[in-house]
């Protein structure tokens, strides 16, 4: 691939609508980092923040602008757990399965939610409403079992209450 192609041509044709300025915001982030290849992780953070997840077109565009081979960008995007290459659900619920949460009943919480939603950990519902995720350790062992519902941390989670809250979100 050439590295001299104009900014994000691929993207413009595939994902950008006329009033979409996300690409401009992403370009501003890359410019702030002077298009340095070592800013890749920061740039991917911004891209995911703007688009919700990382599409192949987005990754190729970032590779072009940072003068990196696409394989490197794809490698980094898939190595780090934070980056997602599939669209997230409208809502998300993450159950911590770290040691401290586990011994305080996190597996039961996850099991009941899996049953309630008909999903396995790591899956998104067919209607795109909710993603159910499991984390290895959130670093919130003092309030175990810990759950993150739409970015809000719930400590000392109680299965029944959590199920009610999730059901309300999906109404």
């Amino acid at each position: 691939m050439t590295t001299s192609s104009p900014a994000g041509t691929t993207l413009q044709t595939k994902t950008q609508s006329s009033d979409d300025n996300r690409l401009k915001l992403l370009e501003a982030t890359m410019k702030r980092h002077q298009h340095r290849p070592d800013a890749l992780i920061e740039v991917l953070h911004k891209a995911q923040e703007l688009y919700g997840y990382l599409t192949p077109e987005l990754l190729i565009s970032v590779a072009q602008r940072l003068h990196l081979p696409p394989s490197r960008v794809y490698g980094v995007a898939t190595f780090y757990h934070f980056f997602s290459l599939v669209p997230p659900g409208e809502h998300n619920c993450t159950i911590c399965l770290g040691t401290a949460c586990y011994v305080k009943g996190a597996a039961a919480i996850l099991g009941e939610l899996e049953q309630q939603l008909g999903l396995q950990a790591g899956q998104t519902s067919a209607d795109g409403k909710i993603s159910l995720l499991a984390a290895r350790c959130l670093g919130a062992c003092g309030i175990a079992p810990a759950v993150v519902l739409d970015g809000q941390v719930i400590g000392h989670a109680i299965p029944d209450e959590l199920q009610t809250r999730v059901a309300e979100l999906l109404k």
Binding site: I41, E42, Y80, F82, F83
Partner: peptide, 18 residues
């Protein structure tokens, strides 16, 4: 600098790579 979810990056040389 923000990491992106990888336990290994606490290892000092992996942290530098990241």
């Amino acid at each position: 600098h923000r990491g992106a979810g990888a336990y290994i990056c606490g290892e000092e040389t992996a942290l530098m790579e990241s």
